[in-house]
Every structure is written in C-alpha cells, then in structure tokens.
Amino acid sequence: MKKIILSALLATFMVGSTYAETVRMGTEGAYPPYNFINDNGEVDGFERDVGDLLCARANLDCVWVVNDWDSIIPNLLSGNYDTIIAGMSITDERDEVIDFTQEYYPPSPSVFMALSGADVDLDGGVIAAQASTIQAGYVAGTSATLVEFATAEETVAAVQNGEVDAVLADGDYLIPMISESNGEFVAVGEVSLGGGVGMGIRESDGELKAKMNAAIDSMKADGSLNTLIKKWFGQDANTF
C-alpha cells in the first residue's frame, strides 16, 4: 500500500518535461454571437474565429476552455487558463486585477429589451442584467432596481416571465433575439457603455500580452479583423 501511494505521489509530481507553447483560451460559451457552444458541442462565434486567427499569427497552440462568467477572472488568476476572451469590456475596475490587450472589438451600444406592449420605466423600473457586467454597473448607478443573474440567458428568461420590466445587455446579443422573437420582444432604449472588448491576461504575463497585441495589430492592419466583425455582427457593425 505504501509503495502504491508513494509511486502515485511521484507520478503526480514528476510527469512531463517536454511541451510546446500552449495557450489555454478561457471563454464563457453562453453569449452569442461573441461566444457560444454550437450544436457540435464546440466553442463557436466571433471570438472563436478571432482567437484561432490570433493564435495562428502569434504562432501559439491554442486550446479552448469553457468557464462560468462569475468565476472567469479568479480562474485566470489561479492559472486554469491563460486568457479571457469572452466579450469582456475593458474597464478600470477590471484593469486593476488583470491586464487587457488592446481592443479587438470597438465599443458597441447596449440595448434595453422588454416585452412588446409593456409600459417600461427605464429609470424607476426593475431592470435585469448579467452579474459583474458593465451593464449591471450602469443599472446600479441609476435609480432603477437592478436584478442580477449569473448568465445572460437567465436575464432574457426573466423578461419573458415578467419577473423584471426589461433587460440591459449588449445590443449584439439582444438584437438577434428581438428580430427572431416574432414580435414578443422589443428594444425600448439604448445606451453607450464601455470602452471596447479586449482579451484579459494575467498581469504577470507580459510576454503573452505583447504577442497578442502584435497579432491584433496585424489583423487590424490587413482588414481581416473587420471581415470577421462584419461576418458575425452584420454589415453595419462598428469596425476599425
């Protein structure tokens, strides 16, 4: 028994010495069209395309990891993956904890969505937002009552069953829902929030940040980033 335990311990501590440069890309997988799990069970969306191209240009071997939005920053810090690429807007609060690359998606408007025909008071009503997002921060600063949910999906469901008056989220996420809901949902307002979407990286990981910044530069320079933005967010989306 002692031998077994000992060799198990040794195996735990001794394995592995050869490795290529592998980068684990952390994403939420629940925020289409930024990132979502497609019907093949794989990470898909704008950020999958951008991330794969960035990794190819920076000559990195990338692996995709899905993680809850709630714990996405703590798990980056403890090293479960090396980047956050999950539609995360660059804000000062986040920048104190992690580093961001330059933005790979310019700021786009956030939209209030409600049931059609509902009389919504955006300043005094009950507004849902996903927890720890810039939208939640914005609603908390108004006189409306903020109700937070762990996923964007649940905020929409809360509107649907009348739990809240409206939801505030990125327009890119809500507009497809509105247009495909057969008139059930309507947009009832718009605000401009945040400073564009960047890739989150540990503060101690300056090398990776430099590589990614260079790759984003090259994608901006040759227009391939704009092509992907148009592919996923439509012809009218803000580009670089």
């Binding site: 289409p32 069209p33 979502f36 497609n38 969306g45 469901a157 495909e180």
Partner: peptide
Amino acid sequence: GMKTGVYE
C-alpha cells in the same frame, strides 16, 4: 435556452 439563428 432560447437558440437564435446562429445555431444550426
């Protein structure tokens, strides 16, 4: 969850 047109 509700699936929009980006899903198959």
